[in-house]
């Protein structure tokens, strides 16, 4: 609770303290678990602020609370775009502690706790989507099938709110990545291929962010 209200109040302060002509945009990074949302958020934050957003992990649902990096100033073509990055927990329709048991580091209690937190995280992400974002970066693992209930539903919600959205086809450094599969799944949106981990194609990523959310 504290984190959220903290974010909320700090957002308020940021709003009040800013006297720029442009309104600061809150860009939510959404997507299914383990798509690389935090890796992307960290990449963006490190590139433009020097700090990270949060710990990355190969374990799904590592991010179980929305994390925010404020006042990320991205410079493009001589002008700058100021955004808040909100890294959200992976959205899913099913959380099962047993999937955490596959990772050696968790015993059952820890797995159950993580799964409860992950579920709370989904609720939080959905709440943020409703209340607090002005644009969405939708991150997909380009090695997996994009035609899922979660993706369809989330993108539907985003479209229903008329939010600007960019589809990021992440993990293009992997052999079985297919950008086309993602482009075909959501032809109504622009798809940007990248590897957040390797930093591939980040120039285009920032161009598009400035173009869409600036």
């Amino acid at each position: 609770m504290g984190l959220i209200s903290g974010l909320k109040s700090s957002l308020q302060q940021v709003r009040e303290s800013l006297f720029t002509e442009e309104e600061q945009k809150r860009i939510g990074i959404y997507g299914p678990p383990n798509a690389g949302k935090t890796t992307l958020a960290n990449r963006i934050a490190r590139d433009w602020t020097g700090d990270a957003v949060g710990p990355e992990s190969h374990v799904p649902h590592e991010t179980r609370r929305a994390r925010r990096k404020e006042n990320v100033e991205i410079e493009r073509n001589g002008s700058s775009v100021n955004i808040d990055i909100v890294d959200t927990p992976g959205v899913t329709t099913k959380v099962d502690y047993e999937e955490f048991l596959d990772y050696e580091e968790f015993d059952q209690d820890e797995a159950v706790r993580r799964s409860r937190e992950a579920t709370e995280g989904v609720a939080e992400a959905m709440h943020w989507l409703r209340e607090d974002v002005d644009g969405v970066i939708y991150v997909l693992d380009s090695t997996t099938d994009p035609f899922t209930q979660v993706n369809t539903m989330l993108i539907g919600i985003i479209e229903s709110r008329d939010l600007p959205v960019l589809i990021f086809a992440n993990k293009i450094d992997l052999d079985d990545a297919s950008i086309k599969r993602i482009e075909d799944a959501f032809p109504q949106h622009e798809t940007v291929p990248l590897s957040a981990l390797e930093g591939e194609n980040m120039d285009e990523v920032y161009d598009k962010i400035a173009e869409y959310f600036g």
Partner: peptide, 13 residues
């Protein structure tokens, strides 16, 4: 305990 199903639409709404 530890197993959940989420209704995204309802959570959003």
């Amino acid at each position: 305990p530890g197993q959940y199903e989420l209704n995204l639409m309802e959570l959003y709404d």
